[in-house]
Design a protein around this nucleic acid. Sequence first.
RNA 1: GGUCCCAUCGACUAAUGGUUAGGUCACCACCCUUUCAAGGUGGCAGUACGGGUUCGAAUCCCGUUGGGAUCACCA
Length: 482
Amino acid sequence: MSVRVRFAPSPTGYLHVGGLRTALYNYLFARHHGGAFLLRIEDTDQTRFVEGSLQDIVSSLAWAGISPDEGPEAPSDCGPYVQSERTELYRAYAAELVEKGMAYYAFDTSEELDRMRERQKAAGVAPRYDRSVMRNSFTLGPDETSRLLSIGEAAAVRMKVPVTGEVKFQDMIRGTIVVPCKDVDDQILLKSDNFPTYHLANVVDDHLMRISHVIRGEEWLPSTPKHVLLYEGFGWEAPRFAHLPLLLNTDKTKLSKRQGDVSVHDYVAKGYFRDAFINFIALLGWNPSGEREIYSIEELIREFDLEHVNKSGAVFDLKKLDWMNTQYLKHYVEHDMASLVAMAQPLLQAKGFTADDSYVARVIRLVHERMSNIHEFPDFAAYMFGDRVVDEEFRTKIWNEQSADRLSELADVVAGVDDASFRHELIHDAINAYLQSKGLKFKDVANLLRLALTGRSVGAGMMDTMEVLGKERCVARMRSMA
RNA sequence: GGUCCCAUCGACUAAUGGUUAGGUCACCACCCUUUCAAGGUGGCAGUACGGGUUCGAAUCCCGUUGGGAUCACCA
């Protein structure tokens, strides 16, 4: 059987990192097995539709490099891939279930259902559809049911769950799961607006789209027995299930907004590298058993398997993400400076700085070890592009009576270095000769130089900074402060 | 509350019956040093608890406790 998996989000908001990880695992699993990865949009609840969310899902996935083999934008023979375009199908299958006696019509209003739940709550029993007292095919009888249907009375189709017995299925991550039928609700399959609920649409589509493995978040575990019952009802072979551990907030609750950023585009906007982010979330809940931390997407595809997916939830820890981003930043400085420059240019322009690519590259190389994210670059290295802004606190701390004279002399020394060889070594030699004649150590003037040249107390090594800054600017900045 | 899932350092995890319980992030110390980083070295820190099974348990079983998810004409 060929591997076919799907990521099936609802267009009810932005793609969040938990969703991205689910998509990633599906994608890695498909690629690892040479199978297909589909994107299906589950938009059967019109009331929750959010404008723009489909675009956000598609663009976030594209940013992550997760490209669907089939989906709304890559149609194939199993389409359409948007559920609202498949409603006829669900109605037909719902009708089939009613015919088979595995589903029935229910005419209850939402007020009646609310009252039922209130009664149950008061009686201290679990809220569940009570087939024997509500208005449905069973209590009304076949004649009244067809009469109500014929006059267009709003009706929902409910699943007829066996009263006894149990539902048993295998989860690839959690093993055998058994739930007594009496604890499974008579789930609505088709709403009275004739749209399917998730449960019906999901099962029908997974079957029709020949999905081999359902890899989804753990929050779906409690409703899986309903799906298993549905497959049995239709006489279909169920796919294999794999329920992923949840991504958690620091307080161990399901990752949510209000405790930090959760949408993928938040992290894109913050400047995290795609590969670093993928690497990070891939390792949240899965580990191939080594001591390695850094994996390229190709390596993830090669190594990925469901056997090494953890059972327990994983806290989304930004600190480790930052560390990982730092690792990738270093890697790019060594192997792909062009991409960094391409990322940095628009950020610089936003600050009003202009510089050619080769200069930007030199500055990135100069300061990168002091950053974990390329978005820090324009602020961190602002003095390399525009005028330096003097940190007055720093100045007050290090300035003394001799500073002006010393700076003036140092400026002369630097001005004396040959233009054509204004390099780290030469600058170092010139300054050192001066210091020796004065009986000083570099330590004695390091802060003064740093203040004059960068205006700040922290930055890259002075010689390297001077080399990149260039003789003219160095001398000018020193003289202007002397 | 019912049902289901889960349980190794603060966080991410390795160890699938035999290890001084390993690695990474964070934290601390030291080294390097021209500030800050980066890098290097070292350190702190964990099998939730109680019973079994076994020569031997983080690992298997039972219970307890704790945490989470879910209980809509939402997905």
